[in-house]
Amino acid sequence: MGKVTMTVNGRARSAEVEGRTLLSSFLRDGLELTGTHVGCDTSQCGACVVLVNGQAVKSCTAFAADLDGAEVTTVEGMANPDGSLGRIQQAFQDYHGLQCGYCTPGMVMSTAALLAENPKPTEEEVRHYLEGNICRCTGYQNIVRAVMAASGQDVGALAAE
């Protein structure tokens, strides 16, 4: 066991970890940040995506000990300072980009990473970027619309496909 410290959603947070403690477990079990979900064990589904030093990372496929000192943002850190839904979160609600909500934290975090890299992505770019996030409920169309809307683009054209 060893102590690992990270800056999580702007706050310094520490927990004791084993070598095998995954970042997802550090967040969920160590810090009780259960917004980050685990949906598979082969790094495919992306429900666990968080930002590590600003980059999208599958938190179930990274050891907490390997990320000592990192800056981590989870879905719990995506709301506005006043507690209202952040821009991406609001777009997902507005465009019905979620149903059961389980993949949603990963979708929101991947979207944050995408828009940081590419503020005005095309539909193709959105679909390609989200290939590492599996959603079983929505059929993706409304997720894509939400991402486009969050980037400030007109989603009317997409809706009329």
């Binding site: 999208a56 599958k58 590492g132 996030n133």
Partner: peptide
């Protein structure tokens, strides 16, 4: 390779 999150690690 993989997907964006995989490529970041």
């Amino acid at each position: 390779i993989g997907d964006p999150a995989v490529r970041n690690r």
